[in-house]
């Protein structure tokens, strides 16, 4: 087990906190720019990935970063965590990691003659779960409750996680020996999955330059406070979603379920998370309403890791991403007025 912790996490029993106050649009934009700028200073040429990561944070989701070793998965997670002035913990998942290591454990205090709760690694604003597929199913599932419900229940007592709360998990798709692939249910809890991909030539050269002396991570200064992030989350929540966009989101989800090429389509939770992610994207784009473009743009990131290809489609060499792209291109955009000229077939 390997847990690093930075920052201080307040452990509070479960109670409903006041809803975060939305941040005004101008400050929202400025803060976003700041965060993205400082992430991009460390992660060269991965603006898309960092933007998606911020989107997921603002949409109160969790992020799964999946790629081969050494492309900066952990680096991205750490940098994002550092740009926000909040508590961060990192769990290196191993087969012998126990659930209590994640959630925490009650220990009998001799002095007070009482059981005392020792919080686990999950009690932080941003939790980085490295190589999550190396932990046993039991430990993985311990993370489930935390991710979904933002609370930990130990010995019958529930403890609320501090807000904002985000799990950034990485996994390595290559090395399958001794791993426990995330079950569908658990994959469904991650709002989005991204791949880092290799940096391009220039970015790689730049990386060699910047990483020569010391880790650029150390130079990262927090760009926003946790309370600010809460305000931004409030802004995202207040983004307006019109009926046509809702219809489009639902139609997209249903299209994945009825597709002959998919064995498993998007769950209603996936549809919900897709809309949340779209709202965050709209807010990041400076709008207070969601466009079908937002939904269509977020759909591959949000939905692909939840889809399971039909055996025949997989045999034909299709990928879930390709099938989803085809579905997005085929679902008509609902519209009140103007689409009368289009072929509705």
């Amino acid at each position: 087990m390997d847990v690093h912790r930075t920052g201080v996490t307040a452990i509070t029993p479960l109670r409903a906190g006041p809803p975060p106050q939305p941040m005004p649009p101008t400050r929202f934009r400025a803060t976003c720019e700041r965060i993205l700028a400082s992430v991009d200073r460390v992660i060269d040429g991965k603006a898309d990935a960092s933007r998606t990561a911020l989107t997921v944070l603002l949409a109160q989701g969790h992020l799964l970063v999946e790629d081969v070793p050494g492309v900066g998965k952990t680096m991205l997670a750490k940098t994002l965590a550092r740009t926000i002035d909040c508590s961060v913990s990192r769990i290196q998942f191993t087969p012998d990691l126990l659930p209590s290591d994640v959630t925490g454990v009650s220990i009998y205090n001799q002095a007070t003659r009482q059981f005392e709760f020792r919080p686990g690694a999950v009690f932080a604003n941003i939790v980085i779960g490295d190589e999550i597929n190396r932990a046993s199913a039991k430990t993985q599932s311990a993370l489930l409750e935390c991710m979904e419900e933002h609370q930990v229940t130990v010995d019958g007592t529930s403890y609320a996680m501090s807000e904002p709360f985000m799990v950034i998990a990485t996994q390595n798709p290559i090395e399958m020996e001794g791993t426990y692939p995330l079950p569908e249910a658990q994959r469904d809890r991650f709002m989005a999955r991204i791949s880092m991909g290799y940096p391009d030539e220039a970015a790689e050269a730049l990386m060699l330059e910047s990483h020569q002396s010391e880790s650029p991570l150390l130079s990262v200064q927090p760009a926003a406070e946790a309370s600010e992030v809460l305000g931004m989350i409030g802004t995202v929540k207040s983004v307006y979603v019109s009926d046509p966009v809702k219809e489009f989101t639902v139609a997209l989800g249903r299209a994945t379920r009825s597709s002959e090429r998919l064995r498993l389509g998007a769950s209603p939770r996936a549809v919900l998370q897709l809309l949340r992610a779209s709202k965050a994207r709209a807010a990041l784009d400076g709008r207070d309403f969601v466009l079908p473009d937002d939904v269509a743009a977020m759909a591959p990131t949000v939905l692909t890791h939840r889809l399971i290809l039909d055996r025949r489609a997989a045999g034909a060499g299709l990928t879930a991403g390709g099938v989803l792209d085809a579905i997005i291109a085929a679902v008509p955009i609902p519209s009140d007025g103007a689409a009368r000229l289009r072929r509705q077939d």
Binding site: L291, P292, D293, A296, P332, I333, A339, L341, R342
Partner: peptide, 15 residues
């Protein structure tokens, strides 16, 4: 449509 760029059903406005 007249000028050979017909809208497709899945076109968003900005697409």
């Amino acid at each position: 449509l007249d000028h050979g760029i017909p809208p497709s059903p899945s076109d968003t406005p900005r697409a």
